[in-house]
Design a protein around this nucleic acid. Structure first.
Lengths: 344, 344
DNA sequence: TTGAAAGCGCTAACAA
DNA sequence: TTGTTAGCGCTTTCAA
């Protein structure tokens, strides 16, 4: 790797002149500037950002930490953040935590060691103490999931209301035996969604039957398993709320395996309006999240926090942005068929 | 930010002792080591990776550059690479090029400036000269797409054969008017896939009718547009090969808008077996790519190139791994209906 | 086992 | 307009 010193030697001048020339400093001879820049290009000089940083310059680095990137929400977020980084000349370090608090912590450590200017994070199920300590040192925006102990800024969905609305939609069509499949209560989103389901059940049916609830990882496999379990135990079920987009494809598969007609025998509402929902077996009714908008706002928030923090050393004010999901009615929901409805 | 010097002062010792203690150097008193490490933890010391790097230590950083991350292939790749990074204590910088050669170049520049140890890249449509120069300096694995000018290692799919097989599948069922929707020939993948389609057409029907071909960006929107155009111009079409997974959902939507029954009126074969293909309107026949396997191998290749390169300064041997796609037959393909078949 | 000192590549204050 | 010099935070000789 060639350095400014190599260029200086080649041109027999001082390395500080080279530095000035390369940084387009004002007090530099135009001739020199051009000569240096040409030589640098010819010799294949590439600045060492580590050395630059040590001289107090910014790392121009931000971090993104998400549990996975297969999820439409997170991949859209990565895209938006990346676009903004490109705009401002930042780089982005991506950490995929796989919902493992330790891995998450390691990734944040690496970020802070690289002196990243800020982090966007969808926190994993539990944060370690180290994670919490590290995040004090750097502007941080929590997206989608929210872990109060991390503090900082947050952009999220009113998950509880979203699932409440989804459940209401089924209840309004006459469903009484409604099942819920979703993620574990260990994440803030899992817990809120379940709470929304419970609240809606209380509003409509009375007590909540926990035999109608299945919680597990956000994978197609679990979606399938949960449907099988649910339908075996409760064949009288006529409506199903699926609280995780990743569980949906497995659920649909299982429904088909069991020969269950949608919406004739079972109505379905999804969460998160993934691209393929409208071309699924039956076009799926779902709660649509303002994915793009949330990502944009979160990114704006992050960059403004980075900007503000430039001068001050104080910690960051708490601020929260909460978005509402909207019901997109398609054809996976309908009134329960009479023979079944009669039972309830 | 506190430094080893702050710790040294607090403990009134030399900062080199602190450094030794923190790095578990052999020649250090156990007492001192513990004391230093405790103090460091208490004071919230975080090493400066920039400074470390300047002392010749590795950056433990790899880069991933992809056109987007909404695509199942690339998101799976990101996951595999991230997992391996976590395993070896590396960090990953993610660049999303949006298929813009300039943005791609900027991201690679940032990578080399940060002294990343290697890059995994799915190159954009055209590489800039700067990109090509930069990538000489650092081990690089091209994945999926292949740009010969970049050289280095490559892991990819026999795209031509894959689309050939897809087309053969339709032809074998009796289809003669087969359309192709795919991405532009400006990427290596777009060109190879189209070549595969053309070759298959020649094998079966004779000349290739370019009115049966529609090329555009890998977006659902374009998929939809292309179907509308194709069916308006060629209502006699009975089979359709869709050469980009992202175009599929739009295509299905358009087909439904036009009231075209799959496979009764039009048979469809997709490329890349995305998760939802089996729960689509009709379970989709598609060419499945060994996504996981390719990502793993590419990652292994990258890390081994990084390892080898440690000593040497020589450039990297060229090596290519080519994978085959396999046909997954589902229910979106069937014999053309008689009234139409009769025409051909 | 520790400290003093050099130096990685760079920028910037100070002189000339 | 340029050169000299210091120093960012760190690791690593070399001495003690």
């Amino acid at each position: 790797m060639i350095t400014i010193k190599d260029i200086a030697d080649a041109l027999s001048m001082s390395h500080s002149t080279v530095s000035r020339a390369l940084n387009n400093h004002k007090a530099i001879n135009e001739q020199t500037r051009i000569k240096v820049q040409e030589t640098a290009a010819r010799m294949g000089y590439i600045p060492n950002s580590g050395a630059r940083m040590m001289r107090g310059l910014s790392s121009r680095l931000v971090g993104l930490i998400v549990p996975n990137v297969q999820n439409e929400f997170f991949s859209a977020l990565a895209r938006v953040l990346s676009n903004n980084c490109a705009l401002y000349g930042y780089s982005m370090m991506l950490g995929i935590s796989e919902d493992d608090p330790v891995r998450e912590q390691e990734q944040i450590e690496a970020l802070v060691q690289s002196r990243a200017l800020g982090v966007m994070i969808a926190p994993s199920e539990r944060s370690t103490v180290a994670t919490r300590r590290l995040l004090k040192a750097i502007p941080c925006v929590q997206l989608l999931r929210y872990e109060p102990q991390l503090g900082g800024l947050a952009v999220r969905v009113n998950e509880e209301r979203a699932i409440h609305t989804a459940t209401d939609h089924l209840a309004a069509q006459g469903h009484r035996q409604i099942g819920y499949i979703g993620t574990l209560e260990t994440t803030s989103t899992g817990a809120s969604r379940l709470a929304g389901f419970r609240a809606a059940c209380r509003d409509h049916g009375g007590e909540v039957d926990s035999a109608l609830i299945r919680l597990g990882p956000p994978s197609p496999e679990y979606g399938s398993q949960a449907v099988h379990e649910l339908l075996s135990m409760r064949p009288d079920l006529t409506g199903l709320v699926i609280g995780s987009p990743r569980q949906m494809s497995g659920a649909l598969l299982a429904l088909r395996e069991r020969g269950v007609a949608i919406p004739k025998q079972v109505s379905i509402v999804g969460y998160g309006d993934t691209e393929w929902f409208q071309v699924a077996t039956v076009p799926l009714t779902a709660m649509a999240l303002p994915v793009r908008d949330m990502s944009e706002q979160a990114t704006a928030l992050l960059f403004s926090a980075i900007g503000n923090q430039a001068g001050t050393t104080t910690s960051f004010p708490h601020k929260e942005l909460i978005f509402e999901a909207t019901l997109v009615a398609r054809h996976s929901t309908a009134m329960p068929s009479v023979d079944i409805a009669v039972k309830s």
